[in-house]
């Protein structure tokens, strides 16, 4: 699992708002991509649909060829266990230690304690927080909290990692660090999709950029560069 395809995906909310309009886009296994666009463009909706926290009104979402729109309710948890997710407001549990926060996805998946400890420590060392495992989230800086959230997202070794404005309230230097971290996970074969409206930051990463506008695909750097190449031009 790792290849993601959206086919003509429309999401209309109960209030009639169309957050996505017949969106078609695909991501190769092991690729990395930034999702951008104005506030309300549909970035979060896109990620929610991918996590199957919402159901598209129309269209198909294929993960390695399997349409997850039709996934039975009881299989959803196992599907979600295969996707790591990071959010702006990190969603850490305040009354659990860093270690327990990171361990949560493994507990939920029923992993035995011995393997669990090894995995949690590996994830914490990847984000450089091994020595803070006993602390509670409130004792950490915002950047550190966000890294705990990332450790939690990758601890189950997902094939897909998604992030929604992961640097939303971090300063530029910290934001760079976080993005580099995602890059590292991508380098070991994880498909990574990061939603962010920080254009300067994501341009500096040199990865594919998809821009949404009112729920439609406005620009795809991958398609654009292919098109430009065909037209004899060049775009960096």
């Amino acid at each position: 699992m790792g290849r993601i395809e959206f086919h003509q995906v429309t999401k209309r909310f109960d209030n009639g708002m169309e957050a996505l309009k017949a969106l078609s886009v695909s991501f190769d296994e092991g690729s990395m991509c930034f999702l951008t666009g104005h506030s309300g463009a549909g970035k979060s909706t896109f990620l929610k649909l991918l996590l199957r926290l919402a159901i598209p009104t129309r269209g198909q979402i294929l993960i390695n060829g399997v349409n997850i729109v039709q996934l039975a309710q009881r299989r959803l948890p196992y599907y979600r266990q295969g996707i790591g997710a990071v959010f702006q407001d990190h969603h850490l549990l305040a009354h659990r230690t860093v270690y327990e926060n990171v361990a949560l996805p493994l507990r939920v998946a029923g992993m035995r304690e011995r393997d669990l400890a090894r995995r949690v420590r590996a994830a914490l060392s990847r984000v450089g927080l091994l020595e803070k495992e006993r602390l509670y989230p409130r004792h950490l800086s915002t950047g550190e909290q966000q890294r705990v959230g990332i450790a939690r997202a990758v601890v189950n070794r997902p094939r897909i990692l998604i992030a929604d404005e992961p640097t939303g309230n971090l300063d530029p230097a910290l934001s760079q660090d976080i993005m580099r971290l995602f890059e590292q996970f991508n380098e070991v074969g994880t498909t990574v999709i990061v939603a962010s409206h920080d254009l300067a930051l994501i341009r500096s990463m040199g990865k594919r950029i998809i821009e949404l506008h009112n729920g439609e695909l406005r620009h795809d750097s991958l398609v654009a560069s292919v098109a430009d190449a065909a037209a004899g031009g060049g775009d960096t």
């Binding site: 395809e5 198909q60 060829g65 399997v66 039709q70 009881r74 196992y78 599907y79 029923g110």
Partner: peptide
């Protein structure tokens, strides 16, 4: 782009129930 048609994936079902297979863990 690949065909959006749903493919037969019975045997390749990656999200079947796994849960607590080990009763000791359960």
């Amino acid at each position: 782009m690949k065909s959006p048609a749903r493919r037969k994936t019975r045997q390749a079902d990656p999200w079947g129930r796994r849960g607590f297979r080990n009763p000791a863990i359960w």
